[in-house]
Design a protein around this nucleic acid. Structure first.
Length: 580
RNA sequence: CGGGAUGUAGCGCAGCGGUAGCGCACCUGCUUUGGGAGCAGGGGGUCGUUGGUUCAAAUCCAAUCAUCCCGACCA
């Protein structure tokens, strides 16, 4: 292809709304263009790369036994209502209606759709296992689209869904998908880290995420430290908390009220009372449409919202409003604690919601493992302006069956080997594999007949890769101050041909060289613009094809071209026939 | 949705009550041609939108929309 056929869309200056390397460079080099927040046009080079990634994904999925289909982007509301996600998905799901006022959603994901499809033709255990996938457009009305292709509202995902008669069969496919994912990312030139992950609102049991280590990563990963480590890798959301040192009790004493008129945070109260934050009980209050949730955790640590949400369940999980806090503690926010709490676990209370309607919510109370059987603790007194000292589990409050509620962090003990410390790194999620279980097959009513002729509800797996995000993370990992450095496997073109000619005769010679390369089936982009050499060199570096071919003086004199490796900068003079 | 910031030519920006400007890009011509050329000429903007204040608004005020950054969702 020539510049006169596919123009370059390069820019000299960074667009001001692009913050991260991939967004900046993909825009400047003319691969993508933003049309609205989280909505991007793929320009010719960008679409070429996109299709290369897609093709690698397709090949590997096929190789590992998956079958490609294509599902509609517009999905009828009934499917979502059947699974119960029409309400749960909330504003993230873009909705629309047709001329008959039938409701639809622009599919943010396709579990319902594929399960509906499976129910159309799956009848017998003999048809299982089966793994169906598609490469399709998804719509998610993200609260905050960000970082160019990394977080879009319209994006392309390869999503695969497998159906099985047994957990063993699911496990087998799950392992195959894991291998396929490794192969895909490796072929794309991406270094990924597979970590244990939380399943989020997808439901199901096991799941792993494929992460690309990056400073702009939105996930925190915890890894078992160094070579002696056990290899444990997990998303912080999922990592069980194992404290570095056992939490000890404080001085035993009867409960004592202390005045803390303005001190609300743990930090303020520790300063006032001159006590270690580990002796505090931090109270965190959340609410859902159905319940008010109180969590009690060690004062020096942060609550894991994901863990709490998974334990508590419910819809529209969010921090409790000040009004709710007053309703359950009888005090202003900042003075809540487990002792003298006016409400009990499981109690139903009347309160007003944000729309000032009267609602009934159930109180749920959870204690972290590290509160159990301890004494001499300090916490809010459920009385505005006061805290309580000398609190003891079993006497002043009942921790009952405790939970893991705390976010693990770097420096904590590895929950698997229980020896090494964890270290942390930031990561971008490019792929995610789940063991989904029967959540969708059950709700969508998918059954097949088993060996005994009895109806059986198959179990499911699902496996996703963000195509555009993969492109973006490749750029995050492969660039320098001059531009992008594409791995050969997904570069739009292999060679960037720069002709430097002073006369029409010379230009004609380069044209012949280009034609020869094309005739030999080489992937080459010829910059035939009438620009000065410097302009072309800079654009070649910016768009980042792996090899630059310069045809100039040495070509006219000796018939040799200069071959430059974009990554290493290494230059050699070769005969054109040597290119492949 | 909360907190912060920004909307002026394709891109990056200045102007902050008195006729709309700069650099790059673009068009024409000449000269140039191995790391973002020079000269000369030229085209292009209802100053995000709506309303207000004023003799006069890009500029002041209000509302609204959009975009970006920081927090809760996800490939």
């Amino acid at each position: 292809m020539k510049a006169s056929q596919i123009p370059l869309f390069t820019m000299k200056e960074d667009p001001k709304d692009a913050q991260v390397a991939s967004h900046r460079l993909l825009t400047r080099a003319g691969y993508i263009r933003k049309q609205a927040a989280g909505l991007y046009v793929f320009l010719p080079f960008g679409y070429e790369v996109f299709r290369k990634v897609e093709e690698i994904v397709r090949q590997e999925m096929n190789r590992f036994g998956a079958v490609e289909v294509h599902l509609p982007v517009i999905t009828p509301a009934e499917l979502w209502q059947q699974s119960g996600r029409w309400d749960i998905m909330g504003a993230e799901m873009m909705r629309m209606s047709d001329r008959h006022n039938n409701l639809f959603a622009l599919g943010p994901t396709h579990e319902e759709s594929i399960t509906w499809l499976a129910a159309q033709f799956l009848q017998s255990y003999k048809q299982l296992p089966i793994n169906l996938y598609q490469i399709g457009t998804k719509y998610r009305d993200e609260i905050r689209p960000r970082y160019g292709l990394i977080r879009c509202r319209e994006f392309t995902m390869k999503d695969a869904y497998s159906f099985h008669m047994s957990d063993e069969s699911l496990d087998e496919t799950y392992q195959k998908m894991r291998e396929a994912y490794r192969a895909i990312f490796e072929r794309c030139g991406l270094a990924t880290i597979a970590v244990e992950a939380d399943s989020g609102n997808m439901g199901g049991s096991g799941s792993e995420e494929f992460m690309v280590a990056s400073e702009i990563g939105e996930e925190t990963l915890l890894l078992c430290e160094n070579e002696r480590g056990c290899g444990y890798r997990s998303n912080q959301e999922k990592t069980p908390f194992v404290p570095r040192e056992v939490y000890h009790s404080g001085e035993p004493s009867p409960p004592q009220l202390v005045e803390t008129p303005t001190q609300k945070t743990i930090e303020e109260v520790t300063t006032l009372l001159q006590q270690d934050p580990t002796l505090f009980i931090k109270t965190v209050i959340y609410e859902t449409d159905e319940s008010v949730i109180l969590a009690f955790i060690p004062g020096d640590r942060d609550l894991s919202e994901v863990k709490l949400k998974n334990i508590a369940g419910g819809t529209n999980f969010a921090m409790a409003s000040a009004e709710t806090i007053r309703a359950v503690t009888g005090a202003e926010p900042g003075f809540a604690g487990p002792a003298n709490l006016p409400v009990k676990d499981g109690e139903k209370i009347q309160m007003k919601n944000a729309a000032a309607q009267r609602v009934t919510k159930t109180v749920q109370i959870f204690f972290d493992h590290n509160i159990k059987n301890r004494g001499g603790l300090i916490s809010g007194a459920n009385k505005t302006g006061f805290h309580l000292k000398g609190l003891t589990d079993g006497r002043d409050f009942q921790s009952g069956e405790t939970k893991d509620l705390v976010n693990a962090q770097a420096g904590d003990i590895c929950p698997r080997c229980r020896e090494q410390r964890l270290k942390s790194t930031k990561g971008i999620e490019v792929g995610h594999i789940f063991k989904l279980g029967r959540k969708y097959t059950q709700s969508m009513g998918l059954t097949v007949l088993d060996q005994n002729g009895k109806p059986f509800v198959p179990t499911m797996g699902c496996y996703g890769i963000g195509i555009g995000r993969t492109v973006a993370t490749v750029v995050e990992q492969n660039h320098d101050e001059k531009g992008i450095i594409w791995p050969e496997s997904i570069s739009a073109y292999k060679y960037y041909l720069i002709g430097i000619s002073k006369t029409a005769e010379e230009k004609a010679l380069i044209e012949v060289l280009y034609q020869n390369m094309i005739d030999r089936g080489l992937s080459v982009y010829y910059d035939d613009r009438d620009e000065r050499p410097g302009v072309k060199f800079n654009d070649a570096d910016l768009v980042g094809f792996p090899w630059q071919v310069v045809a100039g003086k040495t070509y006219f004199e000796k018939g040799l071209i200069e071959l430059k490796n974009r990554r290493t900068g290494e230059k050699t003079e070769v005969k054109p026939q040597e290119l492949n």
